[in-house]
């Protein structure tokens, strides 16, 4: 029992650190030349990985921990509201889609990416007003592309990692 707890703590700690690091790399390499404010969302891959492994509680906790940590480290409280709502809602959406057997890793990832961007537009709508709706199609496209890329990465990750993730 004790080793189980230790395993969990170290593994979740590792995954949170990995997610945080991925987020930081993206913060350092902005993709603004494609469209304003676009990110790949590799750290979302960690969350998706846990969801596919049916570790829902861990997925939500690690995502919130990552967003809070990166929020305090690199962002402003204002952008924290954006990433927190979008992060939590997209995680829940991916968990819901994971209940259906017919979808693949890419499908769940694409839903996560698009829902994340839709929620951000909604939050922006309530903070700055209607003009932001114009960004929605671009962010939808970006969400689809980023979702496909991240889904592929998670697929590789699922096949490369060993059984240690199944035992916890």
């Amino acid at each position: 029992m004790k080793t189980m707890v230790a395993k969990k703590v170290s593994l979740y700690g590792f995954l949170t650190a990995a997610a945080l690091l991925f987020g930081y790399v993206e913060y350092l390499v902005p993709l603004n030349f494609i469209a304003p404010g676009i990110k790949l969302g590799i750290s979302n891959g960690i969350v998706l990985f846990l969801i596919i492994k049916s570790k829902y509680k861990a997925a939500i906790i690690i995502n919130i921990a990552r967003i809070l940590l990166s929020g305090f480290l690199f962002a402003t409280p204002f952008s924290l509201i954006f990433s927190l709502t979008a992060g939590v809602i997209s995680t829940v959406a991916m968990i819901l889609l994971n209940q259906f057997k017919g979808f693949g890793v890419v499908g769940i990832s694409v839903l996560g990416g698009t829902v994340h961007n839709i929620v951000q537009i909604c939050v922006a709508y309530f903070t700055v007003g209607g003009g932001v709706v114009f960004y929605l199609p671009f962010l939808l496209f970006a969400g689809i592309l980023a979702g496909m890329a991240v889904g592929f990465l998670v697929w590789i990750m699922l096949n490369k990692t060993n059984k240690i993730f199944d035992e916890i």
């Binding site: 492994k53 979808f103 693949g104 890793v105 890419v106 499908g107 839903l111 592929f152 697929w155 699922l158």
Partner: peptide, 14 residues
């Protein structure tokens, strides 16, 4: 782990 990489439903969603 028996989830596929891409399914027809995924493509439909996209």
């Amino acid at each position: 782990m028996n989830r596929k990489l891409v399914t027809w439903l995924d493509i439909l969603l996209i």
